[in-house]
Design a protein around this nucleic acid. Sequence first.
DNA 1: GACTGGTAAATTGGATCCAATATCCAGGCA
DNA 2: TGCCTGGATATTGGATCCAATTTACCAGTC
Lengths: 242, 242
Amino acid sequence: MSQLPDARPSDSRPSDARLADLAVLIARNRPRFRTATEFVEAAMREAILEGVLPAGAPLRQEDLAAAFGVSRMPVREALRQLEARALVEFHPHRGAVVAEISAEDSADIGAIRAALEPAALRLSLPHLTADDLALAAELIAEMDAEADPGRMGELNRRFHMTLYARAGRPRLLALVEQHLSAADRYLRFQFSALGYHPRSQDEHHALLAACRAGDADAACGIVVRHVIQAGEQLSAFLDGRG
Amino acid sequence: MSQLPDARPSDSRPSDARLADLAVLIARNRPRFRTATEFVEAAMREAILEGVLPAGAPLRQEDLAAAFGVSRMPVREALRQLEARALVEFHPHRGAVVAEISAEDSADIGAIRAALEPAALRLSLPHLTADDLALAAELIAEMDAEADPGRMGELNRRFHMTLYARAGRPRLLALVEQHLSAADRYLRFQFSALGYHPRSQDEHHALLAACRAGDADAACGIVVRHVIQAGEQLSAFLDGRG
DNA sequence: GACTGGTAAATTGGATCCAATATCCAGGCA
DNA sequence: TGCCTGGATATTGGATCCAATTTACCAGTC
């Protein structure tokens, strides 16, 4: 992981073009992560959010280390970070497990989204560009054509984040994305079980229209309803099989 | 730290009362932290929020380990958790530092609070008891008598959390408390520099009154204004010495 | 047959050890 | 003189090792 040479060339005629190409090449080839811990943390977060590591799954440090081809230590540090994000739970001396999902937790996340997302949208909306709106429209179209639940969640997340992106509040946006992802974990169930798809798409269209019109109040109202009703539907679904 | 016996009694007549007492006794006597990592994490978080470890301070793992009387490993895990909470920043191979504070970050936190706190209050307000309101009033009174900025922040945080506590959304409340604490870090400057004290207390009184009256809209309006104007004042202060 | 007690295996938490990287400073070269 | 190069040092990132705790299993007893 860290013993790769940094691709530092000994080429001694540094034309600007060459340097630029080089930077691109380095950027691409640079192992996406500078430390093993970062790598493991990102991979595990994705695995949990994607459902590859299902809720309740025990996380044996030794096994994970072997799977990632590293020692236990980066795994431990990554698990600690994920714990702080409420994606895994530690039980002292008994190990970590992927955080369980529940109707209560779903409602909790829904309440947080319903509070944060309109705030982000209100800040972002005045600064949205035509390109942003075009991209959002494109993402809606892609969702229409998409069947795979995993890709679906990804597109949904990108659609929402595109509309919030100009808020210029990194911390707020990070929180929003975090809970959007967390909600994805829950929605994964629902996508296959219930066909909540068409209605959701209607709301996406309405939201985009309100954004185009620059109508913050309307847009926020749609977002809140969108989030709330998704949460309720999901809570009902989870309750029905708790 | 972890070699204390678990106080498991061999008493073989388990009356319910005895069991309950036992649970209390165990809970009280159980070392507050079960692992060194938990201990270090809690202590460091407090130290950062209290300002004992000021913004920008380098966090040498060896020194911290010595200070806590443990090895570097629990320190490393604790630092990772604090990184996920945005309280420290890692620079690969260069070490960790206490997260810097800035006017932008202050505004960011203000926006988050302004979104989350009214949501928490709205959920909590219908379930507030007379005791809750009495406690809140008491905390306001204590704030009047308090001069120390540290204790002040603590009281302010408890006052707000008392009003939100009945929201019944653990995740939401954790987020609220986290950002209330983060704001404290910033307010510490202000308390001594500017005398924003009296006005803030007026707002606290007004907020409590609205809660007593069960007027959610009014209470939320006050909270939002309270947070926003504290944020603005602070941003201005920080900008003025950027 | 169920429960207590004790022992053994598995797994985590913590400490130590090694490698890799960044910083700092001296020295050579244009 | 100024900049780049190279090595020494400090500090982190990662691996290995040991101890402590939990769990499972099995024997013995009521």
